[in-house]
Structure formats: structure tokens, C-alpha cells
Design a protein around this nucleic acid. Sequence first.
RNA 1: GGCCCGUUAGUCAAGCGGCUAAGACGUCGCCCUCUCACGGCGAAGGCAUGGGUUCGAUUCCCGUACGGGUCACCA
Length: 548
Amino acid sequence: MDTNVLANLLFPHVTLTPEDMEQRFPTRNLPEGAVISRMAPSPTGFVHLGNLVQGLTSERMCHQSGGLLFLRVEDTDAKREVPGAVQTLIEGLRHYNINFDEGATIDGDAGNYGPYRQRQRVEIYHVYAKQLVLQGEAYPCFCTEEELADIHARQEAEKANFGYFGKWAVWRDRSIEEIKAELDKGTPYVLRFRSTGSIENKIKFTDLIKGNLELTENDIDHVLLKSDGIPTYHFAHAVDDHLMRTTHVVRGDEWLPTLPFHLQLFRSLGFKPPKYLHIGPLMKMDGESKRKLSKRKDPELALTYYRAAGFPVQSVYEYLMTVLNSNFEDWRRANPDADVDAFKFSHKKMNPAGSLFDEAKLRDVSKNVISRMSADRVYDEVCAFAKDYDLDLYRHLTAAPDYSKAILAIGRGGKKPRKDFAVWTDVKPYLDFFFDDWFQITDTYPENFAKSDIKAALEKFKATYDPADDSNLWFDKIKAVADELGFASDMKAYRENPTAFGGSVADVSMFLRVAVTGRLNSPDMYAVMQILGKDRVMARIDAMLATL
RNA sequence: GGCCCGUUAGUCAAGCGGCUAAGACGUCGCCCUCUCACGGCGAAGGCAUGGGUUCGAUUCCCGUACGGGUCACCA
């Protein structure tokens, strides 16, 4: 067959050539070793952990190598497109420190290698589609959906491999006349790749994460252009990543099975393939077994889930880093205050297998992250969270910012900061007793203490409490109260001979704690009283006394 | 079913032919000038399995099992 005739029949409007494209999108002028990579999501409006894992890897590799990261919107499937998705995506990723140097923006494009939305690149794809037809490596296929389903059914019956190949590839070797006849009728068609591969052959391939792989050649005549003229992912991937001069493709390892096809495409098009990093999936426990996190079943896959659950952005970010680069945790311990950007990310530290998503670990990372924040920062973040998810908390905090910050500053800073919060929803139960309208007695005294002792302790403390005292003097006074009651003021002595005393200074403290905070547990009582102020402390003790 | 990837404790993981097989989370126990939160110390717990190669295999090769992925005009 004269491929020239076919090419002009299918693409009469295409006058540009691959050479024109090369000139329009020249090789980028970047230093040796600079990584050029991209995020190429479809605009479904659903930003998930998988996106973030991939994006983080790309972003780190690009920006640590002096390269650049761009955003390309894979909107070739119009059915899945959600309005506003690009904005959601860009903003979501920006939260996580993923910023693009180039590519699609909320309302357009930025950069010289665009357009960055695939549906706007149709004429570019057609240049190469025509080229492949000319080379005899692509042909039209007029099969209907039903015919393809029938082929699949017959393959199933014959226990044959699935797919459009070999004898099943019914349009592969039709005459130009037959093709023209269908074209004249206006029958819709797709453009297929004419694969010369065989499943008898293996190809060797080195993935930057998985290492050396041995894959079976592709023998399927995959679709290049859909019947609406829009390319499939595969074809767009080859054309775009070549023209946009991508050096590294980071993607989920669900793409591994189609990699041989992609490699074929690059070769047929005369492109040098990029380096690939195929990341294992994030899994979760489902009963007894693991499985890949799924969009439909697992709400925790969505980034919005973590925001609603109250995880700081930085916590999710650092958790993901620990999953991606196993030495991140060690680095963080050694550099607790360093900016995360200072960590040297390496694809060599990435695990070839999938990882189980571990919320307990996330919580631990988060506690550490939050413990390193200043009180002001915590205040700001909690307010931002509460504004959307807990208005009551928001109002309390914003009505008394200095008071709130003082509370949040307890045990913060220093070498061994408190780690009370993993998520922002932990904040309210931690500090609610500081606010009079929330304060209530939730814990009660153990039965084995006489009310008279409790009463005496509270009264004695009241008589001597002076907020001007430093913490040592404050505590000495409590010890004195203990002594007067016949309680041990020295814990060591008490532990050695508990029966010799009515109780200990710890118990006296507990009497005060319940009266003042309403609970058996609280942060340091000295700090608590300092923040509450003498009036509140006295009022609460009086209220407790009234019940005894 | 075909093809592919993976497999070190409950989880995340170091390890890259010779080690009593790191560390972290979780669990449990003990300690720590008032509880809690920290912090410290300690414990339980592991190289899926069978063959090779080798003086020697967690490490290399093959099989098996198990887990995962993929076989669309979705990405």
C-alpha cells in the first residue's frame, strides 16, 4: 500500500512536519544533570495521595538538580473532566510545597513548550500520527464497540490472550480501497499502532526505582488516536514528553505493563525515551489482606480527608517523605529544625514495592511536627482549621488570642517539647477547661480520700497561693500543705512507706487539679494557674469547696 | 487465564556474600524533682518456601506459595 496516499487521506489538513516541531520546541538549555519532569494529572478534581507521592518525587528531583517541573493537564478524556479541577489541583499541590515552574495555570499557560492542556495540542499529535502512517506504522481501524467486544468474547472462549493483535487485528492489513470506502461513508475510526513486537521476545529495561526489569514485548495494536481525533494517554505521553523535553517520568507502577508499548512508540517516532521511575502503590489493610488504596472505597486517599481530620499540611508532607525516602526520619532527628528542602532526596532510597499506609505512623510524625512549631504558629494553624471545622473553637480562640497563645505555649520550645497534638481536633479537649463556659468537672476524686482532707487541702492552698511566687516556691507551699495534712511531701519517702502517710503531695496536687481543671490530668499546674489567673483559680476552688 | 512487579518483625524499613540482622511506629514493662505529655531504659517480635551457585547466603540464580498490578476509543 502507498502510505503516502493513506496519510493524505487521513490527514489532509496536516502540513507541518516533525522537523517543524523540533524547531518550535528546541532542546532546553539547562545544565548537565538537570531533571525536567512533570505532573500530568487528569482534571478529575480529585487530588489524592498518589498524586502527591508522585508529585513530591518529581518536584524534589527537579528542584534539587537545578531543573524544572511543569504541569500538563491530561484532559484527553472529556467524560472525566470536572470544572474547576485545574484550580483545585494547583492550589492543593501548592499547599504541599509543590510549585510549578511552567505549564498549565489556573487560567492559561506559562512557558514556551505549550499548550499544556492536551486537547489544545491536537494538531501537534496529528503531525506525528501522519508521520507514523507514512512510515506504515499506523492504520485506521473501523471496528465498532460491539465488534471489539465480540473479539474479546471469542478470545475468552478460545482462552487466547486478549487484545487487538495478530489475526484479531482485522483492519491491520486492509486495502486502501476498503479503507477509502469506509471513510467515504463517514464511518468513525480510530488510528492504531502497527506493532511489530512479539510476546516471544523480552526486552531489558532499567527503571530508576525498580532496577533491571525484563518485560515482554508488546504485540498489541494499541489505539493512538480515538475516534474524535484525540490521542490516548500512550501516544500523548510519547509526543508530549519528547517535545516538552522531559528527562524523567515519575508515575505509578500500574504503567509498567504498557511500558514496552511506550518504548516502541518512542522508537518509531524517533524520540529518545526519558528515564522512568515507577513507584509502587500505596496500600491499606483491608481485613486480612493488603490492597491498593482505591479512590472509590477509601476516603483517606483524598487530600481533603487529611485537612478535615486536622492534620497539618507539613505532617502529611513529612510522613510521605518518610515513606518515600527511608532515611528521611534519621535526617529529621539529626536536623529537627531544618527546612525540609534541605533534605537530600534520592530516588535510590525509594522502595520498589508498595507501602502500606500507616495512620499511626502519620500521627507520630504529626506529633513531632507540631511539637516543633511555635505557639504562634500553632495558634494560626488551629484557627485556620477551626474556622472551617469548629466554629465554636474558632470563636473562643480568636476572642482571646494572647490567652490562647499562652495556653498553647505550655511546654513548648526547649529540647523536650510536649507532644499533645497529632491533629488539630486534639486541641479543644486539651484546653477547653481554660475557658469558663467550657469548664466543667469531668473527673471525680477517688473514694479513698476523706472529703475533710480534700477540703482542708484546698483551703490551706487558697490561704497561701500567690501568683507572684515562682514555680519552686509555689510547689514548696503545696508541700507544706501536704505536711500539715499528714501527707508525705517527699515522694521518695512516700514510696518507701506509703502506709505511714494519709497520702502524698501528688494527691494534694490532684485535689487542686480536679478543682481547677476539672480533670485528673493536665499540663503543669503551675503554668495552668499562671495562665488562668488568681481570680479564676480562686473561684474554681471555691466552687469545689461548696460541693464538699 | 496471559503478562509484569514485589516479598526482612503487626507496620515503615536499613542491609547490598561472612554482622549477636540497624533504626522508627505500635504493643508491653520499668524509671523520671505533682498527674498528663515528654524523656530514659528494657522486652516480645523478622529474612515466605524448596532447590541450586559458593568455603559461606537475608544478600546471586531457578521453581513454588502468597501479595499487588495490568490486559479500554480511562488515565
